[in-house]
Amino acid sequence: MSLFSSLSVSASGMAAQRTRAALLVENIANSETTRTPEGGPYRRKDAIFSTTQVGSEFASELDSQMQTGVQVSAISVDQREPEKQYAPGHPDADANGYVHISRVNPAEDMVDLVGANRSYQANVAAMSAVKDMIQKSIDLLR
């Protein structure tokens, strides 16, 4: 059934946008974090999308028609030098009294978050349209 694989495509889009939103929220939450397990201040993360072939669970080998969905293929980590802020009293300050803080720009992340939200909604709209089409096909049997 071809319509069911459209649901998988929209689901892959929703999952990818949700992952992206999670990373953006993490960035905002950690914009002032100076300690991380890797050492140094927090570094901004972002999702890299790529196309992927998705099929319905029931598609099996018989239905070789695969659909182009989306996946998070990598998570990019900001490699720029951290910003320095003069705060001699801070426990993480270096010998010269500077604290290394992340280069997260909350405004940038908020804008991206709005974009992720909009894309998620578009996928939901596509999914509900396909759902209605499947329902119409089922109604033919009544």
Binding site: L3, S6, V9, S10, G13, Q17, F49, T68, V70, S119
Partner: peptide
């Protein structure tokens, strides 16, 4: 044909942010 086109539209929307 319409459902096939719908699949392509779903793919386009899912990949709206794919470089």
């Amino acid at each position: 044909l319409v459902s096939m086109r719908q699949k392509l539209v779903s793919s386009n929307i899912a990949n709206a942010d794919t470089p």
